[in-house]
Write a protein that binds this DNA or RNA. Structure first.
Lengths: 243, 243
DNA sequence: CGACGTGTTGAAGGAGCTCAATCTAAGTGG
DNA sequence: CCACTTAGATTGAGCTCCTTCAACACGTCG
């Protein structure tokens, strides 16, 4: 297998961590040298299943994945979306037992990194460790915003908010822009992420289109008026801690 | 001011961290020696306000506090409850700027610990650092459960779930039991924590009483049948990571 | 082509909301 | 110790946003 030297596999992780905390060259090198094995998953497959005790955590190299939890009555809640560059499972690999599952939304490629290597690196290089700690704190910030979204906003606002978050995050990694992007989620998944039903999501999305805010095709969104959409979605990017 | 040697101020933090990760005696000592200043807040006062950039994080020594975020339309979402022993603000002190606020629910006493001391300790003593990292991960686990609660369970289930979580957590720190406890929240706060309205919370609570599951007085709950309440609340304590 | 996953639409019903009034307990000040 | 105040709990009536159920449309893929 050929090693492509100029674009190392672990580069997305370096880029992500640098968002939270500038890293020294030695720190970057250490992250790039993290031991890992590559792995692919088809859409729909589980990267982690509730109850698993995983000994490695995965860095998402390409594609989309999401976290989910199922409630007793059968409903499923989507808890977070993950895009290329995200370190997906500190949570489930550091804690002994996965309290939720992570599923591939599209075909994904991941790098599996042994838990011990992560921990060792975090404590031998405080710069890296702090960046990783920040990363888990920012995850928490997104959870809090989602909770607010689901608990205290009406359907239209919730969905607009989700579209805005996606736009901002995809833009940050160069996979889209505030003018539009590939939308990887189905309406059912949007429903499960916002605490709504598929039918209602559909009606709201059609409404946004009709009102000239967005223009959807099967798997993409064009956003005609970003500022207005942010307004409708009660969206402010602060909680993403991107800047 | 007399120093009480046999029950050090920082003891609750040691107890909490040991839940996640056994600490060596030297580690414990180091936590106990963390520099700090004591401070009291009256009920309703803010420990942290959205937008603040705090340079210290607080350990809750007594009383109750909660995190909250306000949505554009004016609704407030309560994001988490904190009880004695909780380290309340790694999130807001490590990240540059608070993305939500923390408010005292009752009169509280806190120990303010400088951010730098926390970080220095975390990286000089990996045992402690790992325990603190776990702590932020467990916070995340609670957020995920709450999101599921709000997004995918009906009102009765949500409220029963909240009562169960409280019972389990209070029991873990010896402030109550699964047979009952002092309930510090008003019905308005329960509403804001569960994404409901005060009126509806009231009706559901009365229902639980009428059905013989609970028996409330002004500020306490007696739980007649814990197992059944857990059932109604779709509650399983796994996500608390207490054992 | 047929079948399946996804999106779209209609009609009817209900869980939870809103508004507004009343009740209760626990202060608080005189 | 009592009148007064106030925060919180309780109740009723009407309404609405969202759900449920069920059918149909569309496009993609074997």
């Amino acid at each position: 297998m050929a090693l492509v030297v100029d674009t190392p596999v672990m580069a997305p992780m370096v880029r992500k961590l640098c968002l939270w905390q500038p890293l020294s060259d030695a720190d970057k090198r250490a992250v790039l040298d993290l031991p890992h094995t590559l792995r692919s998953f088809d859409a729909g497959n589980y990267l982690v299943e509730e109850g698993d005790s995983r000994s490695d955590c995965c860095l998402l190299l390409s594609g989309y994945a999401f976290r989910q939890k199922v409630a007793g009555a059968g409903g499923r809640q989507i808890l977070a979306m993950h895009i290329a560059g995200d370190v997906v499972d500190l949570q489930n690999s550091l804690l002994r037992r996965a309290d939720h599952s992570v599923q591939a939304l599209s075909a994904v490629q991941v790098a599996l990194i042994p838990r011990e290597a992560i921990v060792a690196l975090a404590f031998s290089r405080p710069g890296v460790g702090l960046a990783m700690w920040y990363d888990t704190l920012v995850d928490g910030s997104l959870y809090r915003e989602w909770m607010t979204n689901i608990g205290r906003r009406d359907a239209r606002t919730r969905i607009a908010h989700l579209l805005c978050e996606f736009g901002s995050r995809l833009e940050a990694v160069g996979l889209g822009s505030t003018a539009g992007y590939e939308m990887p989620m189905t309406q059912e998944q949007i429903a499960d992420a916002t605490g709504l039903t598929t039918v209602h999501v559909n009606r709201i999305l059609m409404g946004l289109d009709r009102q000239g805010l967005t223009q959807r095709t099967r798997r993409s969104v064009i956003i005609h008026d970003w500022d207005r959409l942010c307004d409708v979605g009660d969206f402010s990017r602060d909680y993403l801690h991107l800047d």
